[in-house]
Every structure is written in C-alpha cells, then in structure tokens.
C-alpha cells in the first residue's frame, strides 16, 4: 500500500500534467507539428533527387560572379575559405532560397576547400536551406519572448491558412514556413521574418513583421500573394518602431547632463 502522502503527490502530479496537456489553444494539428520540431529545413545528410544531386551543373550568374569577386577581395588570397558564408548566402539568393548540393560543390571549388568543409558550414546555420523553400519563406520566431506572446498561435494560423506542414512548400510554390530562433525583436514580440526570393539576388529582401496577430499574418500572406508589399516593422498602428503604444511616456525632453560633473571643465 502507498502511504497517503505519496498518493496525494501522485494525484497532484497528474493534475499538473493534465493542465499542461489540455491547453485550449493547441489544436490537434499543432500537436502533431510539435512532435517533429526541427530547426533546419532538412536532414543533416543529402539524398539525391532529380533537382538536387551532385551531377547537376550549377554556376553563379554573370552578375553574381562580380559579387563573388567583390566578396573574395575582402579576404587574403590564402584565406579564401573565410568567404564561405557570404558566398553561400549569395548562392541561396540566386537559387530561389535554397542550396542544392551542386551549389555547395561550386563554392568549394571557388574557395579551394574540400566540399565537406562547405557542407559543414551550410548544415550548421539554420538560415541556409538545403531543401526547396517557397518564394516567400516565412520564419516564425520561436524563442521565449515571442513564444510567450503567442508565436505558436501565429505559426498554427499560418500552417492552417496555407495548408502545409512546417518546412513544406505550398502547391503553388509561393510560401513555406520555418522556425527561427531569436531575431532580436523581443520588444515587438511576436514577430515573423519573411525572406523574399521571388526576384533572385537582385530583388532579395529579408523583412521583419512585428507585433503580428494570427489575423494579421494571414493578411500579410494574402497581400504578398497579390504581389503587394505589406508595411514592414510593427503591425500595431498605435506604435512607432519599438516605442510604446500611444507615444513615448518617458525620455520626452533632452537628457540632462550628469549632475556631479562639470562638462565644460573637461
């Protein structure tokens, strides 16, 4: 027989667990999505497919070759490998938001290292996508401040609206949704970042949409679908940038000089 105290403790524990499990806002679909949380868009190894294999030819476009030269000019000629991250970024912009293995091989050839050294970098950073993404890649911040302010609801709203799973591309190839770690917008949480790959590296943009609500993100998505450009930054009409709602309440005048210090005497 268990002692009364231990039975009480077990009951209490059960209650706590039920409380967590029955969070009202979490739908069944979201629960399924949450079991497969991964930060990057792909596995840590490559599987050959018709649009992503080492035999595919991949080259920088003529415009971007100029940029490659410019990037490499920042580094000493014997440390070309330092340029791996900017080059990967450039290649990703050129290739519609993701890096096929042949693009990484091409970069390895340019910076004169073994391909595996480039794969190591590309798999390390979650900003490099190694599988196909949509023309607009929506990145929902999932770090604590945004999560507390409801980023899960935002992600679920997006997933439901677009009818995809995380890291999946919509049928029309326009959108995909991923998760990002903190992008430093905690004061305007929750936020999403949208990488726009629709116009190659020339028209590439990477914008933050802050203070979003489940309703607002769907509006943003629809505006993007129509080819409009939604206003970047905070989506709360009563706020300017990181300022408080309804205007500043402190620091309204010029700051006073330090009281115990005669600045003129310095």
């Amino acid at each position: 027989m268990f002692s009364p105290t231990s039975r009480l403790a077990a009951k209490r524990l059960h209650g706590i667990r039920r409380m967590f499990l029955q969070s009202p806002s979490v739908s069944a679909a979201a629960a399924a999505a949450e079991t497969s949380r991964s930060y990057s868009t792909a596995l840590n190894y490559h599987i050959d497919s018709p649009d992503n294999n080492p035999n595919m030819k991949w080259e920088f476009s003529a415009n971007n070759l100029e940029k490659v030269k410019e990037i490499l000019s920042h580094y000493p000629s014997n440390y070309k490998q330092s340029g791996v991250i900017p080059l990967l970024d450039l290649a990703q912009q050129q290739h519609g938001g993701w890096l096929p293995v042949s693009a990484m091989n091409e970069i390895a050839r340019i910076i004169e290292v073994a391909p595996i050294r480039v794969y190591e970098v590309a798999t390390f950073y979650s900003m490099f996508n190694r599988t196909k993404v949509g023309k607009y890649h929506l990145l929902v911040c999932g770090t604590t401040p945004c999560m507390i302010s409801g980023s899960r609801d935002i992600e679920n709203a997006l997933l439901k609206h677009l009818g995809v799973k995380r890291n999946e591309v919509t049928k029309d190839g326009l959108f995909s949704i991923g998760e990002m770690e903190c992008m430093g917008c905690c004061v305007n949480a929750p936020m999403i970042a949208i990488a726009d790959y629709s116009n190659g590296s020339e028209g590439y943009s990477y914008n933050y949409y802050e203070d979003v609500t489940p309703k607002r993100v769907i509006e943003i998505v629809e505006m993007l679908r129509k080819g409009q450009s939604p206003p970047v930054g905070t989506q709360n009409p009563n706020r300017t940038r990181g300022g408080p709602e309804g205007g500043n309440t402190t620091l309204l005048g010029e700051p006073k000089p330090p009281p115990c210090r005669d600045l003129d005497a310095c």
Binding site: S38, Y39, S40, N44, Y45, H46, D48, P54, V101, V113, A114, P115, I116, R117, Y119, E120, T123, F124, Y125, S126
Partner: peptide
C-alpha cells in the same frame, strides 16, 4: 583530414542534431 589526408568526414548540423558524416553518399 590530418593523417589520412582525405577530406571526406565532417561534422554536420549543430547542437543536439550534430552528427558525423560525409553529407553526400
């Protein structure tokens, strides 16, 4: 990479998803 002189193996991924591999087959 240092003794055998073949740069085949690497450390892929990050954090708890980190793994040793060749990335491509």
């Amino acid at each position: 990479s240092e003794v055998a002189g073949v740069q085949d193996l690497g450390m892929l991924g990050r954090g708890s998803g980190e793994e040793i591999g060749t990335y491509v087959e």
